[in-house]
Simulated scan of single mutants.
Amino acid sequence: MKQIALPFDELNPDRTDDCLIVTPSNAIAFAALGNSASWPGHCALLLGPARSGKSLMARYFSVQSGRVIDDADRLSAEDLFHQWNAAKNSGEALLLVSGKAPGEWNIELPDLRSRIGAAQLLEIGELDDELAEQLLLKFLRDRGTSIGPEALAFVVRRIERSHAAVEDFAKKANALALAEGSAITLPLVRRLMPA
């Protein structure tokens, strides 16, 4: 696992989430962002579930080397086609970010559908144990709290394999610990996550 501090200080100095944690679940997609010259048509689709780090990766890419369209599936086909052509005319690589596979997009223009179908596909995989652990530690650290190793291991073994579930659990555990004036211990997490 490696944690990459992203160069966003000049964009928003108050952010606390500007570190992207790279583990096997997202390492291939992250590495491919640095090789946009090899993308077919200089375009890639970055796909992943909610709260999986897509936006952080996209921000990293835009600062480093290219144009990003977040929530690309929500753009009209005409707007998307215009953005595609603008990126091509400027010589920039284009990263389209979405939580949906291209087959779920509403693309009525055959030429655009063909281009998107030929683009490099970068997928953020299912949350692995290493990423679940590191995300939980980060979300708690961002709230000024921590969790003991025994409680951490208990949570990682049982938590739903989604980035949003890990963040939600961190919020609940932190709130309960603050309300009770206690640390985030194994008995506390057992109450939030029955065995």
Rank of each mutant, 00 (worst) to 15 (best):
P13T: 12
R15T: 11
R15Q: 11
R15G: 08
T16N: 10
C19N: 10
L20Q: 03
L20H: 05
I21S: 05
V22I: 13
V22A: 09
V22F: 11
T23M: 04
I28Q: 13
A29P: 04
A29R: 06
A29W: 02
A32E: 05
A32K: 05
N35Y: 11
S36K: 13
A37M: 02
S38I: 08
H42M: 13
C43V: 15
C43T: 15
A44R: 08
L46T: 02
L46K: 10
L46Q: 04
L47P: 01
L47W: 03
L47D: 01
P49R: 14
A50N: 12
A50V: 14
R51G: 01
R51H: 12
R51P: 01
R51W: 10
S52M: 06
G53H: 10
K54C: 04
S55Y: 05
M57C: 13
A58N: 03
A58K: 11
Y60W: 15
F61S: 07
S62I: 00
V63C: 08
V63G: 01
V63S: 05
Q64C: 12
Q64D: 04
S65Y: 00
G66Q: 05
D70E: 15
D70V: 12
D71M: 14
D71C: 13
A72G: 08
D73K: 15
R74I: 05
S76C: 06
S76M: 08
F81C: 04
Q83A: 12
Q83W: 09
A87V: 01
K88C: 07
K88T: 03
N89F: 11
N89G: 03
S90Y: 05
E92L: 14
E92N: 13
A93S: 15
A93Y: 00
A93K: 08
A93I: 00
L95R: 08
L96D: 00
L96S: 03
V97E: 00
S98Q: 04
S98E: 00
A101K: 13
P102T: 09
P102H: 06
G103F: 07
E104N: 10
E104C: 09
W105V: 01
N106F: 11
I107S: 06
E108R: 15
E108C: 11
L109D: 05
L109I: 07
L109S: 04
L109W: 10
P110R: 09
P110S: 06
D111I: 14
D111T: 13
L112A: 09
R113M: 08
S114E: 00
R115S: 07
R115N: 06
R115D: 01
I116M: 10
A118P: 00
A118C: 12
A119E: 02
Q120P: 00
Q120F: 10
E123N: 12
I124T: 02
I124S: 07
I124E: 02
G125H: 10
G125N: 04
G125Q: 07
E126H: 13
D129Q: 03
D129F: 09
A132N: 02
E133C: 11
E133V: 05
E133N: 06
E133S: 15
E133Q: 15
L136P: 00
L137R: 15
K138R: 15
K138W: 11
K138I: 01
F139W: 08
F139E: 05
F139V: 02
R143C: 04
G144E: 03
G144H: 12
T145K: 07
T145L: 08
I147W: 06
I147T: 04
I147V: 11
G148K: 11
P149A: 14
E150L: 11
A151W: 01
A151Y: 02
F154P: 01
V155K: 11
V156W: 11
R157G: 00
E160M: 14
